[in-house]
Write a protein that binds this DNA or RNA. Structure first.
Lengths: 64, 64
DNA sequence: TACAAATGTAAATAAAACTTTACATAATGA
DNA sequence: TCATTATGTAAAGTTTTATTTACATTTGTA
């Protein structure tokens, strides 16, 4: 696992669509990021981290 | 000013080319990011933050 | 079970990141 | 001053991110 978006999303009881709306992207973008289809921009990463009140490093740089 | 790459680069006495090499991109990419021509990927942002031993938020999310 | 909501997935397209090349200007040092 | 190094900038092209649409499958719940 490379990022913890799914985990934080579960913790906050948000659907992919909910999170997408909160950070201003499409649901498929959330899906793709969660499933490591691609690397988001740092701006989007910061928006997500902010929303979940965690650091970018925690959300995207977690080992294992 | 939106990001502190130029500042950290000065602190570490690195040229754009040096930093580019360290994080594996072209010098023009560093130039473009420093000058807010575009938003790097979170992976590149993390590489830079790591190199400078600062957080992504500090490097890219500093106010003013 | 049956329906609704959420997720997985794909394909076409648009937009943006990033590379490469190239050159002009500014800064630094011998 | 002269030469070297660093920076600013641009344009063309490649790669990747992100959108939109669409549909199948899974999961939750009445």
């Amino acid at each position: 696992m490379k990022n913890l978006i799914r985990v934080e999303r579960a913790r906050h009881r948000l659907t992919q669509g909910d999170l997408a709306e909160k950070v201003g992207v499409s649901r498929q973008t959330i899906y793709a990021i969660e499933n490591n289809k691609f690397n988001p921009s740092v701006t989007l990463a910061i928006k997500m981290a902010r929303y979940f009140e965690v650091t970018v490093e925690y959300l995207f740089d977690s080992e294992e």
